[in-house]
């Protein structure tokens, strides 16, 4: 049972886990101790978490609002786009698909600069949260399109639609009754990816934000730069609590999508 190779594998795995987990544990602990430099002996407290809430609850709500709006836009744009690409396979579709993925290859900073150059002078827009939303949609849309497209590619969409049409369903009915339900695993996986990415997005958002529009990650950078360590760590804790369930749901959704394809 316990051969030397297995033992080595176990040790390596544990080391890798420790490498990843210890900073997280330390950070969480820092956010909950009265004084990080005196350690746990100084006692545990929720004071810092409360302070984070007081200072940054606006950021938390802004991030949630942004993520949900971003999800709505990517659903409205991305699902029909993926459908159109799946129904019209060909060279032009491949080129379009590559185009939608282009924002991924460009650094967020460059993307943000381009947006600022183009729209920065429209004052009402520049200072509105929808300006950041545009950046988030640009960055997350490819994930929605790809995710839906990969599911649609595994089903014989044309035959299914012809079947529905032969039974009297008009194009809009077919989209709602046949396309969307069968693309659901991809839509779900895409939706979770979009929300997670939008909440965690920093590069682009940092360039676009104003002092009145700080998202969760921008606020985190701000707190590390200007607050005491305990507050920043408590902030990290808040961030974890928000993002970890999303990540787990994402894993679950993609596992489900995989199962559906078999």
């Amino acid at each position: 049972m316990k051969t030397p190779t297995k033992l080595i594998a176990l040790i390596v795995t544990l080391l890798a886990c420790a490498f990843l987990l210890i900073p997280i544990i330390q950070s969480v602990q820092a956010g909950l101790t009265v004084n990080y430099f005196r350690g746990l002996s100084s006692g545990l407290t929720l004071k810092w978490v409360g302070e984070v809430w007081e200072l940054y609850s606006g950021s938390i709500f802004l991030s949630i609002r942004l993520a949900l709006a971003c999800l709505a836009v990517t659903l409205i744009l991305g699902v029909p786009a993926a459908y159109a690409l799946a129904r019209n396979p060909g060279r032009a579709s491949r080129v379009l698909e590559e185009f939608t993925s282009l924002p991924l290859a460009i650094p967020g900073l460059a993307l943000a600069l381009a947006l600022l150059q183009l729209y920065g002078t429209y004052q009402g827009f520049r200072t509105n949260w929808s300006f950041i939303l545009v950046g988030h949609v640009l960055y997350t849309l490819p994930f929605m399109v790809r995710s839906v497209l990969s599911v649609l590619a595994t089903i014989d969409l044309r035959s299914l639609e012809e079947g529905a049409a032969s039974l009297g369903a008009r194009p809009a009915r077919r989209f709602v009754d046949i396309v969307v339900p069968n693309a659901l695993p991809g839509i779900l996986a895409g939706a979770l990816t979009v929300v997670t990415l939008s909440i965690g997005e920093f590069n682009l958002t940092w360039m676009l934000h104003t002092p009145y529009l700080k998202t969760l990650p921008v606020g985190l950078a701000d707190s590390y730069a200007s607050m005491r360590l305990e507050v920043a760590s408590a902030y990290t804790l808040v961030f974890f609590v928000m993002i970890v369930p999303l990540l787990m749901a994402m894993q679950w959704a993609s596992a489900r999508a995989q199962r559906n394809m078999q």
């Binding site: 014989d156 035959s159 079947g163 009297g168 069968n182």
Partner: peptide, 17 residues
């Protein structure tokens, strides 16, 4: 969709959902 036909496809095209 307006012809009121019934069609049986080679692949059946049954709705998996």
């Amino acid at each position: 969709e307006q012809r009121r036909i019934g069609m049986v496809f080679q692949s059946y095209a049954l709705f998996p959902n």
